[in-house]
Design a binder for these strands. Structure first.
Length: 105
DNA sequence: CCTATGACATTCG
DNA sequence: ACGAATGCCATAG
């Protein structure tokens, strides 16, 4: 299915994200050449096979550095835990320090 | 054809 | 700084 191609492309990008590094939905969408489809990237993550498929969707966060409220692994709390375990630093605001850990191709 | 919805992003008050 | 509103694109009713 051609639609799945979009998903596969999103997975391919997220799969390239190294540990201790985070990226945003808009960023991934932009790499695919379609920055307007940021929402679909999010949907792709929702449907993502998870770390088993090599898709660390927990490294994909909002543009402002916040995590997905309620749709994550068991809440943003768990996601924050995982990111911290990978070496990602968090700000006192409870958001990721994008200034340091924002992933760049 | 118009309205509603969605792991987003950006702008305004 | 935070919350609300609007914009984008695609699918469904």
């Amino acid at each position: 299915m051609a639609d799945d191609g979009f998903f596969q492309r999103a997975y391919d990008i997220v799969r390239q994200v190294p540990e201790g590094r985070v990226t945003t939905y808009g960023q991934v969408a932009r790499m695919m050449g379609e920055p307007r489809k940021a929402r679909y990237v999010g949907f792709a993550m929702h449907s993502s096979p998870g770390m088993k498929g090599g898709v660390p969707c927990h490294r994909v966060i909002f543009a402002d550095g916040s995590l997905a409220p309620g749709f994550a692994f068991g809440g943003p709390e768990e996601q924050r835990r995982m990111l911290e375990a990978e070496g990602v630093g968090f700000l006192p605001s409870g958001k990721v320090d994008m200034s340091r850990f924002s992933w760049e191709a």
